[in-house]
Simulated scan of single mutants.
Amino acid sequence: MEIIAAKRELQGTGASRRLRHAGKVPGIVYGATAAPVQIELDHNTLYHALRKESFHASVLTLNVDGAKESVLLRDTQWHPFKQQVLHIDFQRVDKTHKIHVKVPLHFLNEETAPGVKTGGGKVSHVVTEVDVTCLPGNLPEFIAVDMGAMEIGHSIHANDLTLPEGVELVVHIQHENPAVAAITLPKGMKSDEAAPEAPAAPAA
Score class of each variant (00 low, 15 high):
E2L: 14
I3C: 02
A6M: 12
G12T: 05
G14L: 10
G14K: 13
A22P: 03
G27Y: 09
V29N: 01
Y30S: 06
G31T: 04
G31S: 12
G31K: 07
G31F: 07
V37Q: 14
I39F: 09
L41E: 00
D42Y: 12
D42F: 10
T45C: 12
E53Q: 12
S54C: 01
S54L: 02
F55R: 00
H56S: 09
S58G: 07
S58N: 05
V59Q: 00
N63P: 05
D65R: 10
D65M: 09
K68H: 15
L72P: 03
L72Y: 01
L73N: 01
L73K: 01
L73F: 07
D75N: 15
T76E: 04
Q77T: 15
W78S: 09
W78M: 11
H79W: 09
H79R: 09
H79E: 08
F81E: 06
F81K: 10
K82W: 10
K82L: 13
Q83C: 09
Q83D: 14
Q84F: 13
H87S: 06
H87D: 04
D89R: 05
F90S: 00
F90Q: 02
F90E: 02
R92K: 02
R92H: 03
D94W: 00
D94V: 00
T96I: 06
T96H: 08
H97N: 11
V103K: 01
P104L: 11
F107G: 05
N109L: 06
E110F: 04
A113T: 08
A113R: 09
K117S: 11
K117R: 15
T118G: 03
G121Y: 08
K122T: 03
K122S: 04
V126W: 04
T128H: 11
T128Q: 13
E129V: 05
V130W: 05
D131Y: 00
V132I: 11
G137C: 10
P140L: 02
E141K: 12
E141S: 12
I143K: 03
A144F: 03
A144T: 09
D146I: 06
D146H: 10
M147V: 08
M150F: 00
M150C: 04
M150G: 07
E151M: 10
H154P: 00
H154Q: 15
H157I: 05
A158I: 07
A158G: 08
D160Y: 05
L163G: 06
L163F: 08
P164W: 04
E165N: 08
V167R: 01
E168Q: 01
L169N: 03
V170G: 04
H172V: 13
H172T: 14
I173P: 04
I173F: 04
H175D: 14
H175M: 14
E176C: 02
N177Y: 06
P178N: 07
V180A: 02
A181M: 11
A182C: 11
I183Y: 02
L185Q: 08
L185A: 07
P186M: 07
M189P: 00
M189S: 02
S191V: 14
E193S: 14
A194K: 14
P199R: 12
P199K: 11
A201E: 13
A201C: 09
A201R: 14
A204M: 13
